[in-house]
Design a protein around this nucleic acid. Structure first.
Lengths: 224, 224
DNA sequence: GGTCATTCTTGTATGCTATACAAACAAAGA
DNA sequence: TCTTTGTTTGTATAGCATACAAGAATGACC
């Protein structure tokens, strides 16, 4: 039949194509970048496939070729983004000299420029698209685990004592960050206000005493 | 010109039509009910205007007539729903005999059947549709204020002492509820797990002592 | 170097959806 | 009865995601 039509990914139509050749990897990456930028600003419904393709200097069909659906692209971009965000926040916090500064730097970075809002939309999307849930779940698990590692490393390196196990603190941190982000979005609050609100929320969980100081103390100190 | 076409709401095209006649009020209400049911289960993008109209035995055009846009209908339905949810939760909690039971009943009702997920989507929608933000903001303010009133009433009626002012507790409660709901959705956790998680999160804020008991005590007791 | 399968790009077609719009119809009030 | 206003019924349209077709590039193997 003189070639005939070649079906896209005939072996397993459920999975997105992992670009193998250099050009393909490049295109895929450019699409992800463009999607990040537009989705972050306008949300899932606010950015069309045509917009994204145009921003990446590509064809709309290339999006369906590499990601199957717009929503799959959205989730992949959001997950990649939030992991970058978390890494940047931890790096920023790593320069802190006290437990209080550490927490504040972490919170400020995470809430800055509404980086979480993007990922929150991906989280809520999984209700309608359960097939994309595993991707998001893995990302949340990594957030907890990597935050856990960074937290544990900080504690060990600085000789502090933690008021709760790192995993619990990490889960609390992200749950509260999500809640504050969403409410802040809806109420149109400035990032600075969100930081203060979140610090107030997580401080007692992190072990803030009534005098406003964190209970993180040196292991050889008077704490615990 | 023999009548001619009658433009929809020519005076102010920005506002939805408040039904005045009995039939109109009925139609509007049926549409809201149908929208609540479908949106709650399938989300904004998961339910089409045609679906909702069919469920309400109405015409798609009637939705645009009464609500201008699908998203406005979504927000109105979500806000109405979450206020009902809050009222039901407070009524449920009102039967509690201890401060611990009060908190637990409140949390269980709010997290039951994912009633918050619907409203969370409305909150995040305001980023893309700032014109709908005032509606959501007013609802959040009412949630805080009514929860505040109920909380204050409980405190006064039972002679308990609060560890923080009611407004602060209300804001913390809702922020944490939102965060736990979203993470629970994404991680596919059962409602029971969410209740436990949220109780752990808000307990220290509500004044839980290290022995697990809330610090809410009778005013003539040993507390505070 | 020729053959061929695979990957990727380019382009078109389609079905669905929200919504704008037109006009008939119903219900009051003058 | 006539007019105004609210409501219903019906049609048209533009935008969208995506399915699909087929050429073009790439690389492996003989």
């Amino acid at each position: 039949m003189k070639g005939g039509p070649r079906l896209v990914n005939p072996s397993d139509p459920k999975h997105a194509i992992r670009a193998t050749r250099a050009a393909g990897r490049q295109t895929r990456s450019l699409l992800l970048d463009a999607a990040s930028g537009l989705f972050k600003r306008r949300g899932l419904a606010g950015a069309s496939i045509a917009d994204i393709a145009a921003a990446a200097d590509a064809f709309p069909s290339q999006i369906t070729y590499y990601f199957r659906t717009k929503e799959a692209l959205f989730v992949e971009a959001a997950c990649r983004d939030v992991l970058h965000l978390a890494r940047a926040a931890e790096e920023q916090a790593g320069r802190a000299r006290s437990a209080q500064d550490y927490t504040r730097a972490l919170v400020e970075s995470v809430l800055a420029a509404d980086g979480l809002g993007f990922f929150v939309e991906a989280m809520t999307l999984t209700r309608r698209r359960p097939d994309l849930a595993p991707f998001v779940e893995r990302t949340i698990a990594r957030l907890h685990a990597e935050g856990l590692r960074a937290y544990a490393a900080e504690i060990a390196a600085r000789g502090w004592q933690a008021p709760a196990d790192p995993e619990t603190v990490a889960r609390r941190f992200w749950a509260v960050a999500v809640g504050v982000t969403v409410e802040g979005q809806a109420m149109g609050r400035a990032p600075g206000d969100l930081v203060i609100e979140m610090l107030r929320l997580i401080a007692p969980m992190a072990g803030e005493a009534s005098d406003g100081r964190l209970r993180l103390v040196r292991a050889d100190g008077p704490g615990r």
